[in-house]
Amino acid sequence: MSTLTVSVVTPDGPVLEDAFEMVSCKAESGELGILPGHIPMVAPLTISAVRLKGEGKSDRIAVSGGFLEVRPEKVTILAQSAEKPADIDIDRARMAKERAERRLQDKQADIDFQRAEMALKRAINRLDVYENNF
């Protein structure tokens, strides 16, 4: 079975580089499944989980903002942050979630709703990725 090289890169360094058979992720325009031999493509990603499937292994990565570059035999994900389940700081994510929820609840005009909402999304995404794996 042919494979494609997947590398996940963030400003803090590479997170993962390995061969997989399939990548599925959530782009801004909807779910995308990528198999080897895909046409070159660029797409922005939402805050979501990227699922990677390979021979007898699978991996999930929590991605916050970024985009995906596809070549026939290589997929590069450039994200501002990306974590494997084992690297997620679960307490921090829980706290971030609570904080963001609190902020969204008290309806004062001077807080940045958009920012709080993004923070909430990131926290929920991390928790999801963490919990699905265990």
Binding site: P40, V42, P44
Partner: peptide, 18 residues
């Protein structure tokens, strides 16, 4: 030459600030 999903403008919208 890449395919752009959904289109170039929206990708630039995300890509350039980053």
């Amino acid at each position: 030459s890449y395919e752009y999903e959904p289109n170039q403008e929206e990708i630039l919208e995300v890509l350039l600030p980053q």
